[in-house]
């Protein structure tokens, strides 16, 4: 295939962008632009913005209920008018499919000017989601261009993409922020409704490749064994080689039926701190509570 064929094919790559936050202080070091992609293969019970999990199927239920008529159906597709939208999120509450009509399909060339605008004020960008690595071809095209701007590039990932088999995505990536939601296979499958096999392989591979920026684990109320298993597993592997963020479960935004299972209260701070101590005692010196 001539190289131009590949080039023109690349030009057409798009990805669904749920949201761009120009200034974020919680998506990696310094001030960063966080770009949230739509869609995730996991379906975490604790997900607190479940509207990013699935793609819109254009059923139109949200269109009628929008109080400011910011949604319409054109050619069988739900179309979102940003100018009219007041972000009341009625559409998101209405959606029964864990999706959002407020998603923009963008090419790299459309996204880059938005990053360029913020460039003077940020150290880098972080791709998040949803699960950004679903759109790995988009990222492979985007990252070198972002590096040319003098910015750093981080991926915030659920670890579902096997990074060892996709080295191109890491070539222009400064690091991955990896969620290890559960070490135990069965608990992971119950919690996330997906296997953790690749996640755990990625944990070791990224560390070896020098691309693991941080690992995050959520501490759930009353689940001593599961919490202990995961924190111990991660700590023994990462030691002091990367940041380990211990995060408390928070009920905000979690679907009601899941709150009934996981709890309708935030994990107690003192309880969560015991897992920071556990992590440190096992050698994860850079563990801290968020």
């Amino acid at each position: 295939m001539p190289w131009t064929a590949g080039y023109s094919a690349m030009k057409k790559i798009t990805a669904p962008i749920n949201r761009i936050i120009p200034f974020s202080n919680v998506d990696g070091p310094s001030n960063r632009t966080a770009i949230f992609f739509q869609g995730c293969q996991f379906n975490c019970r604790f997900c607190h913005n479940p509207e990013t999990i699935h793609m819109c199927v254009h059923c139109g239920e949200c269109v009628e209920i929008c109080p400011v008529k910011a949604l319409s159906i054109q050619d069988g597709r739900v179309v979102w008018n940003k100018e009219l939208c007041v972000n009341c999120d009625t559409c998101i509450r209405t959606c029964t499919r864990s999706a959002s009509p407020k998603v923009t399909e963008m090419t790299v060339d459309e996204l880059l000017p938005q990053i360029e605008r913020v460039r003077p004020y940020i150290q880098g960008i972080t791709l998040s989601g949803g699960e950004c690595t679903i759109y790995k071809d988009f990222i492979i095209e985007l990252f070198p261009r972002v590096k040319e701007m003098g910015l750093t590039t981080l991926l915030d990932s659920n670890g579902s993409l096997d990074f060892e088999k996709n080295p191109e995505i890491l070539e222009y990536c400064d690091g991955v922020m990896l969620d290890v939601k559960a070490a135990d296979k069965d608990f992971h499958e119950w919690l996330v409704r997906h296997s953790n096999e690749t996640v755990l392989r990625n944990l070791e591979y990224l560390l070896r490749a020098g691309k693991l920026y941080e690992v995050r684990t959520i501490i759930f109320p009353g689940r001593d064994k599961d919490n202990t298993d995961t924190v111990s597993y991660v700590s023994r592997i990462i030691q002091d080689r990367c940041i380990y963020k211990i995060i408390r479960y928070r009920q905000f935004g979690v679907r009601e039926e899941q709150q009934r299972i996981l709890g309708d209260d935030t994990t107690d701070e003192a309880y969560a701190k015991t897992f920071v101590e556990l992590a440190r005692s096992l050698g994860a010196a850079k563990a801290y509570l968020v």
Partner: peptide, 12 residues
């Protein structure tokens, strides 16, 4: 107030 908009990250 400049907020960190915590509700926008799926990963809690």
């Amino acid at each position: 107030i400049q907020r960190h908009e915590e509700d926008h990250s799926t990963h809690q």
